[in-house]
Every structure is written in structure tokens, then in C-alpha cells.
Amino acid sequence: MTERKRTPWVVGVSGASGTPYAAAVLRGLLAAGESVDLVVSRASRLTLLDETGIAFRDAHWREDLGEWLERGADGKPASFARPDLAGVRYWGAGDLAAGPSSGSYPVKGMLIVPASTACVAGVALGLSKDLLQRVASVTLKERRRLVVCVRETPLNGQTLKHLVALDEAGAVVLPASPAFYAGATHIQDLVDFVAGRVLDAAGVPHRLYRRWEGELGSSRPPEASGG
């Protein structure tokens, strides 16, 4: 019997604020038994350092990734159990000869979480200035699923045009816009809602949020009984 070919999801992390979204998506993919190819842009390392205190290093990426995925949206360590990272492969953002830079490299698709406006512009214009943008361009040309979780507000006209261009090219434009009907009681719940919608767009099963079932008020906790 031949070994089943590894077919990962590529997760690209750009420099926008919102590294907890990326962590939640990564945890969700790994919990679902998916393989992951990870690309962390140079700009996103500064954001990650600012939002978590973690310095993401190429030579120690597995250790740094494990620490990152243990942290919740509040930045506190050990909020989550460290997942098994055996299914993760890391590619440096400057490595334009990396596997996912070619359409012949088998992947299921790409999730950009979060996507900065600079990243959106680069992908929409086909610039391929780094590996993240190159993989996104390859994903589009190969007609694979591309989910762009844009994290910016407000949006100017030029960015809106770029997002329309991505939609017309076949990408799923998914703003990091949490909803409240799922009964959020913590910042992590809002983060998990957005991450869950990203996984929904990719067709990956998860239990990150409570789905709408058509009953008004179902997200509210029961009223405390009076004494």
C-alpha cells in the first residue's frame, strides 16, 4: 500500500493586527486532523511580538509556534493545550523556491488570516513580492480555495476595489467581523467565531462557535432566579 499523499492547507499570516485569529484557525485545522503549511510574513512577526510577546524565529519556529498556540486572545500563556505540530511544515516568507510557490505542489487551498490591506493589494495586483503573496497567486491560478480574512477598518476606496478584484478572481473575502448571536462571554469567543467562519469557508469541520438555529434569544444565558 502506498502512503497517503500529504495535502495541506497553506495558512498565511500577514502583518495586520489579529494574530489571535490566526492561532485559532491553526488550532482548528490541527484539531480537525488537517496538515498545515505555514507562512509568516516579516511584518506579521512585529505584530505577533507586540500582541503576544513572542519573537517568531525561523530557526526555532516549532518552539515559537507551540508557545503561540498555547495563548488565548488575552495573551495569557497556557490558555490552551499545546497541539501536536507533527502535521505542520514551515516556509520562510523570503523563500520563493518553497514548495507552495509552485502549482504542482499539492495543497487544498490557502487561508490568509489576518490579511492586511497591503497583503490584499499585493494579491489583487499579482505582485508576488514574498512567498505569502506568491502562494496566494498560485492558489488563484490553480482555481483552489483562497480565503482572505481582511482585518482593517475603515476601508478606503482602493482597498474596496482590491477586495472586489479578489472576489471576481474566485477568492472568498471574509472580514474579521465577529457576531454576537452565538452568546459570546469572552474575547476568545469572538475570536473563535471569526476563525470558525474561516474554517466554514474552507469546508473544515469544527466546534468553535454555536451556530444559529432559528430561535430568537437562544444565545442569552438563562435568567437567574430571584430569591
Rank of each mutant, 00 (worst) to 15 (best):
R4S: 02
R6H: 13
T7P: 04
T7D: 04
P8K: 09
G12A: 04
V13H: 03
G15F: 00
A16Q: 09
T19M: 06
T19G: 11
Y21S: 04
A23M: 08
A24R: 14
V25H: 06
R27D: 03
L30K: 11
S35L: 09
L38N: 06
V39E: 05
T47V: 01
T47I: 10
L48M: 15
L48G: 02
L48Q: 12
L49C: 05
E51G: 12
T52N: 13
I54L: 09
F56V: 14
F56H: 14
A59R: 15
H60E: 15
R62N: 12
E63Q: 14
E63G: 08
E63N: 14
D64C: 07
L65R: 01
L69I: 06
E70G: 15
R71H: 10
G75V: 04
S79L: 08
F80L: 04
A81D: 15
A81L: 12
L85E: 06
G87Y: 00
V88G: 00
R89A: 11
G92M: 06
G92F: 06
L96R: 15
A97S: 13
G99Y: 03
G99T: 05
G99M: 00
S102Q: 07
V107P: 08
L111Y: 02
A115L: 01
A118T: 14
A118R: 13
V120T: 09
A121R: 13
A124I: 07
G126S: 09
G126P: 04
L127N: 07
K129A: 10
L131T: 03
L132W: 03
A136Y: 04
A136H: 00
A136G: 10
V138E: 12
L140I: 06
K141H: 12
R143I: 02
R143E: 13
R145K: 15
R145G: 02
V147F: 00
V147C: 08
V147W: 05
C149I: 11
E152Y: 00
N156W: 06
Q158R: 11
T159F: 04
K161M: 10
H162K: 04
H162E: 02
V173R: 00
A176F: 01
F180D: 05
Y181P: 15
A184Q: 11
H186K: 06
Q188V: 05
V191Q: 05
D192K: 10
F193D: 14
A201I: 01
R207P: 04
Y209W: 02
Y209G: 03
R211V: 14
W212R: 03
L216T: 07
G217R: 05
R220D: 14
A224R: 07
A224C: 02
G227L: 12
